[in-house]
Structures are given as structure tokens and as C-alpha cells.
């Protein structure tokens, strides 16, 4: 039950993009087509879950015992950067089709603040190992939900007669604002 609550709260109540403002760059940058949005979601889910797991283990088995918690930021970003490289190499070897689909998104993920953000948040919230993993999965679903819905709306927007000065990014932000407003309706359900 507790794990279901973590997922619901991560997906709907405090959605990582629309409520916590993490991962805005891919949210605006790769959301003009549904297909690329799905690819990005796949890559982020993959990296986010593994990264949260690995950083959790490193934090609790290396940084805390050695009393060097202030090294958290440097350690986490290095872990994520090398993890992305590793995932890229492994995918290329064992699953070329998946690599073809996710390949171009993987390098972008190193500087996706959602991945580092979730890893740091999971540690800050004092979650256990299983809770952290569930939390990462929930946030990845939340990211996917926001990104894919948003890209669907943007595809439709292309067909509309948007005022010239609002074309592109400005109207995208206004749409995102309205989506965030809709997601506020979930406040208080958990």
C-alpha cells in the first residue's frame, strides 16, 4: 500500500515536471513529436531507475560511513555521467534496435536535471532501497505521462493558427501552465 502511495504521489500529486520543475529542457526541447517523446521517456526511465539505485548504494555504503556527505553532488553527477556512457555501450552491444531507438537521447540525459534531482531527493527523503526504486519508477512514469501528453497537444497545436508572436516556445509554456493547473486538481488525494 505504502509503495502504491509513493507511485501515485510521484505521478500525479507532485509530478516531476509540472509540479517540481525538473527536466524542463527535454520537456520543451523534444516534445514536438509523440514518437520522440516516447523514445525520450524510455531512455529517461531506464537511466533514472538505475541511477537512483546506484547512487543510493554509493551514498549509504561509501559516503555516509566515510563521513564525506558533502561530496554528494560531485559523486552523483559522476556516477550518472558514467552510467549513461555504460548504458550506451551495453545497449549498442546487446540490443541494436533499442540502441537505435534511444541512442540519440542518451547523451542528453547526463544534463537532464530530473535524473540527478530524483537521486538527490530519494536520499534527502530518507527512503530505503526498495522505496527509492519505487520512487524512481513513479517519477519516470510521471515524466513520461507529462511529456507524452504534452507532445500530443503540441502536435495538434501545429495545425492551429497561433498568433505569430506566440508560435513555438511561448505557446508551449502557456499550454504547460494549463496542464499544471489541471494536475493541481490531484492535490490532496494522497
Amino acid at each position: 500500500m505504502e509503495y502504491i502511495l509513493i507511485i501515485i504521489s510521484a505521478v500525479f500529486v507532485s509530478n516531476i515536471v509540472l509540479n517540481q520543475f525538473l527536466g524542463i529542457c527535454p520537456f520543451i526541447g523534444v516534445s514536438s513529436k509523440v514518437e520522440t517523446a516516447i523514445g525520450m521517456t524510455g531512455a529517461v526511465t531506464f537511466v533514472m531507475v538505475i541511477a537512483t539505485l546506484v547512487t543510493y548504494l554509493i551514498y549509504h555504503s561509501v559516503l555516509v560511513p566515510l563521513d564525506i556527505v558533502y561530496m554528494r553532488t560531485i559523486t552523483f553527477i559522476l556516477v550518472i555521467a558514467s552510467l549513461v556512457q555504460l548504458v550506451e555501450i551495453i545497449l549498442k552491444k546487446i540490443s541494436p534496435p533499442l540502441y537505435q531507438a534511444l541512442g540519440i537521447f542518451l547523451p542528453l540525459i547526463t544534463t537532464n536535471c530530473a535524473v540527478l534531482g530524483v537521486a538527490v531527493l530519494a536520499v534527502q527523503k530518507d527512503f530505503g532501497l526498495l522505496e527509492s526504486t519505487v520512487y524512481a519508477i513513479g517519477n519516470a512514469i510521471g515524466f513520461g505521462l507529462a511529456l507524452i501528453t504534452f507532445s500530443g497537444i503540441r502536435e495538434q497545436l501545429d495545425l492551429l493558427n497561433v498568433p505569430k508572436r506566440m508560435k513555438g516556445v511561448p505557446i508551449a509554456f502557456i499550454v504547460a501552465g494549463l496542464m499544471a493547473l489541471a494536475f493541481m486538481g490531484f492535490t490532496g488525494i494522497v
Binding site: L18, P170, A172, I174, G177, L178, A180
Partner: peptide, 13 residues
């Protein structure tokens, strides 16, 4: 949160 997106959207306009 919604206000952040709306305000930035209109500032970009």
C-alpha cells in the same frame, strides 16, 4: 507551479 509556466510564457511573448 502553473503560474510559473504562464508568467514565463507571456514574458516570452
Amino acid at each position: 507551479p502553473p503560474g510559473a509556466f504562464l508568467a514565463l510564457g507571456y514574458l516570452l511573448v
